[in-house]
Amino acid sequence: MQKTKTTVMIVYILFLMIPIYWLINMSLQPNRDIIGSFTLYPQNLTFDNYRRIFTESGWAAGYLNSLTYVTMNTVISILAALPAAYAFSRYRFIGDKHLFFWLLTNRMAPPAVFLLPFFNLYQSVGLFDTHIAVALAHCLFSIPLAVWILEGFMSGVPKEIDETAYADGYSFPRFFIFIFIPLIRSGIGVAVFFCFMFSWVELLLARTLTSVDARPISVVMTRSISATGVDWGMLAAAGVLTLIPGALVIYFVRNHLARGFALGRV
């Protein structure tokens, strides 16, 4: 039994890792080798592809822009979702179920056409090409997810805790910040992970709402690629560079994830 499980896990992880390995492998080869000879590992190891990317302008700024709006989005989503999730987990109120389903429907709008009104909307309120515009637009799908995740964790906290705290003379804000939030901090960790994830990988909205000052990394990447034609080595190197922030985030939240997943339903 245990053996089968381990084997399945290993096979699955190999399936996930081999394409990524291949990407890294290609990024470390000169183009001549990629096309000329098929090798399972780089025979003429080179960092030229990376060097060329870093000497081109825009990369560092692109990284910084992406991280800025992703962080803003995560903070806004969590702050707004905390009270809402509390309301959903503790109270019944008019239209609560419908509100919840409506929040979910916001993921369903096909982006291609909605991009134009988004562009016009943010232009008309003077936010076009700012980080906060992308952060607010991404709230559309990160907030519903955060509410849903946090609601699950909050429902796991017995209601008696609220009542005891009020009986002890805690005001609501004091109870919420000093007692309740520490109880669900792993849940917050999981919510942070999902908000970060969906905002980091989203491309269409981020590209539409920015031009120069807030241009995200994935756009910088596509531009430098199309400018040089099909350059496999550089394409691979650029791909590897966009993987790093995600990998770092998972690494830092791994214990929260493990604990959060152990605690309650996501």
Binding site: I13, L16, W22, M197, W200, E202, S218, T222, L243
Partner: peptide
Amino acid sequence: TLVLVALPLLVPWNVVGTI
């Protein structure tokens, strides 16, 4: 395992195509 399993989720969507 959590870190390895979660990795593909954090790849920007156009990069998934490239990979």
